[in-house]
Design a protein around this nucleic acid. Structure first.
Lengths: 220, 220
DNA sequence: ATAATTGGATAGTAGAACTATCGAGTGATA
DNA sequence: TATCACTCGATAGTTCTACTATCCAATTAT
């Protein structure tokens, strides 16, 4: 398959494909001559993954590159690769040092994770991400305690147990496993987020007993 | 309070505050003379809301403006205001017309919402958002059925029932209610997302029986 | 022989979210 | 009263991200 066909099949314009090649998101094709390269199904597949992470997951290109680097790097072992992929998916947040609210929130998060017995790396950026939500909620006048978060935590664990983890072929080829993990994390995550918003619309409509019809336009 | 104090208390630089004023995110202060305006607690509060939606919710400024317009517009009624706020929070997606996969996905979504008995506006952009995830999962070789989504849907409903809706003072002043709804939707949504990723890290670590420690750096 | 396509390189663009500067008008201080 | 810091409002510039566009020499197809 040449680049024009790859473009036609994926719907991604040629200049964009070239951009992904430059950025290292897409591996080079099989160079058959100075001005010709051959692309295969794996390129199409990779391209679809990139577009999914970009369009549905709204991940920045730099994060996608890290995920892909983790998938492609044959040296690092399975578990480290999953970790790298996981951390590439988090939105980094740099807490202001010496901030009392932040310290407190981080402690709450750490205590909760420990209390739940979860195996989360002590330096996982995800911990700060959760602390950020806690701090922000407090500043907005809606302080959050561990008891407020625990039902969310156990619901999250149930979802992951029942639906994500069972779909990931941990015993299969490593690249397929990481790819599946990333897809589950991002796409099922998105799907759940949308379902939550749908549920919230439905419930608030029900509570107010009105018809679910805003007068304004429905575009963002 | 003058602008410099507003800046000091909120941590937002003065030029940025001016930018928010220009963009209509922040109401003008009380003009006491040609070159002086007075800001109050409500400005500080609004500024914190803006930053929360921006930094934690990653909402674009245009969406925040719509949310705020809904809160501030006294003409539209309570329920319509909630609807407007809701739809401003969704990420719009324009499905290619005449696409078979999309049609099918939208049908699945509509059937599921109807089957659950949820009160969701037929034109809610959220429906297409969910359809997008379904289409993308299919294209990535992980087709999704209603049965796959139902547990997610009921978990979402439980969460909203137990934690979000109970926190929203539907009987109080309308602006407080919408603001609370938005905060719940965005911040608890984010918190749950992080918890899900933490749970996933924990579970995949447990399944692989390894230490939760990637060799690479942990930054995005 | 000629037209189309490709790879590789370089440069340009659009949108988003700020950030900087300027000029004239206050208000507080010396 | 003079001065100086602060403010408003307007305009312009910056940075970052994700693309697009153009060009060229080298093929390859017709």
């Amino acid at each position: 398959m040449r680049i024009s066909q790859l473009s036609a099949e994926s719907g991604v314009p040629i200049p964009t494909i070239k951009y992904y090649l430059r950025e290292g998101l897409l591996p080079q094709g099989d160079q058959t001559s100075a001005t010709r390269a051959e692309y295969g199904q794996e390129h199409l597949r990779r391209l679809r993954l990139i577009r999914a992470l970009l369009e549905v997951g709204r991940l920045p290109v730099a994060a996608i590159r890290k995920v892909i680097a983790a998938v492609d790097d044959e040296r690092i072992d399975f578990h480290d690769m999953l970790g790298t992929a996981h951390y590439a998916l988090s939105t980094p947040v740099e807490p202001p040092p010496e901030d009392e609210d932040w310290r407190e929130a981080r402690e709450l998060v750490d205590r909760m994770i420990a209390g739940l017995g979860w195996s989360v790396h002590p330096l996982a950026p995800t911990r700060d991400e959760l602390a950020q939500s806690v701090v922000t909620l407090k500043r907005l006048g809606m302080p959050t305690s561990q008891e407020d978060l625990l039902p969310y935590a156990s619901a999250a664990l149930d979802l992951v147990r029942d639906l994500d983890i069972t779909k990931i072929p941990f015993d299969g080829p490593r690249d397929v496993a990481v790819e599946t993990l990333v897809i589950c994390e991002v796409l099922y995550g998105k799907a759940f987020d949308v379902l939550r918003r749908l549920a919230q619309e439905s419930e608030s409509t029900r509570i107010l007993g009105a018809r679910p019809c805003p007068s304004g336009d429905t575009t963002r």
